[in-house]
């Protein structure tokens, strides 16, 4: 394609605007990074800056001093994220494909059912009862993995993508004599790579960022997820510094992790996902669907 002069200028404008937006998103994390590398006293005295105040690795040393918990937390999170994403992506895609098919009799009924469950839920207590008393999942990795296998939001997102598949393609598969299940795995899945990559990424993020299931269902310290590890420390400090405690009890706040250590934890928790991100991006390729039809 030949670019006109006008288009070149337009491209420049877009690039500059996006650079500004990217900075807007990235600068705050640079503050966090810099804070995690700062000296604690200097940070409190002078406030945050983009260049660490009195460079110090004390915060990271503090966290890695007892690496046992953080290593096992990484292990749990990585395992749950990998396994959970794989299963969830398959199950979500199958369900989404079914409701995306306009010729399916129960499509709208199912769509409504999924939507209904997105808004109405029995609340936490009944879910807790089901998970602990009937599914017997308390204190196991399953309790972290299973709740997010089907999230209505992901199903609808996937449905949105799959609705783009031309009907002609499905018809063609039918003429070939392939059954629905076969044509789903042989044709639909391969041509939906960008959709799978996107939703897969979102599912992975859901697992990675989750702390709530750990809080509710995990009692043993060795199956806590990374985010819960971080969240626990952050929120505990926040709670202790705002809730009214009974006056005669003094909880020793001075011993809790310092602000610099908390920032370091945040960096350690977010880092790996940002490295993984570009791997998914190779699946974002233009016009895959069409190529498949033509081929």
């Amino acid at each position: 394609m030949v670019q006109s002069k006008q288009e070149k200028i337009a491209n420049k404008v877009i690039t500059v605007a996006l650079i500004l937006l990217a900075l807007f998103c990235v600068v705050p994390i640079l503050y966090i990074l810099s804070a995690s590398l700062s000296d604690e006293i200097a940070l409190t005295r002078e406030g945050y800056s983009l260049i660490p105040r009195g460079f110090s690795l004390e915060a990271y040393k503090y966290i890695l001093e007892s690496p046992k918990s953080i290593i096992s937390a990484y292990g749990v999170t990585i395992l749950v994220t990998l396994a959970g994403t794989a299963v969830s992506l398959i199950v979500t895609t199958m369900l989404a494909y079914v409701i995306a098919r306009k010729d399916f009799r129960l499509g709208r009924v199912f769509a409504f059912m999924i939507f209904f469950s997105m808004l109405f839920n029995g609340g936490l207590v009944p879910t807790y009862i089901m998970v602990t008393k009937y599914f017997h999942l308390k204190d196991s990795l399953w309790a972290l993995m299973l709740p997010y296998i089907i999230l209505p939001w992901h199903v609808f997102l996937m449905k949105g993508f799959l609705s783009d598949i031309p009907t002609s393609l499905i018809e063609a598969a039918k003429i070939d004599g392939a059954g629905e299940i076969k044509s789903f795995f042989r044709i639909i899945v391969p041509i939906s790579k960008p959709a799978l990559a996107t939703v897969g990424l979102f599912i992975a993020f859901t697992y990675w960022n989750d702390w709530y299931q750990s809080m509710l269902y995990i009692d043993s310290s060795n199956i806590n997820s990374l985010q819960f590890y971080l969240y626990r420390i952050m929120n505990n400090i926040q709670y202790l510094s705002t809730s009214m405690q009974a006056g005669n009890i003094t909880i020793d706040i001075a011993n809790l992790p310092s602000e610099t250590a908390r920032m370091a934890l945040c960096i350690l928790a977010a880092g790996p996902m940002l490295i993984i991100f570009p791997f998914f991006q190779k699946y974002f390729v233009k016009g895959l669907t069409v190529g498949a039809v033509k081929g």
């Binding site: 809080m215 509710l216 626990r232 420390i233 929120n235 505990n236 926040q238 709670y239 202790l240 809730s243 909880i251």
Partner: peptide, 8 residues
């Protein structure tokens, strides 16, 4: 932790 204890 204290923060999540009431909810749990």
């Amino acid at each position: 932790d204290y923060a999540n204890y009431p909810q749990k």
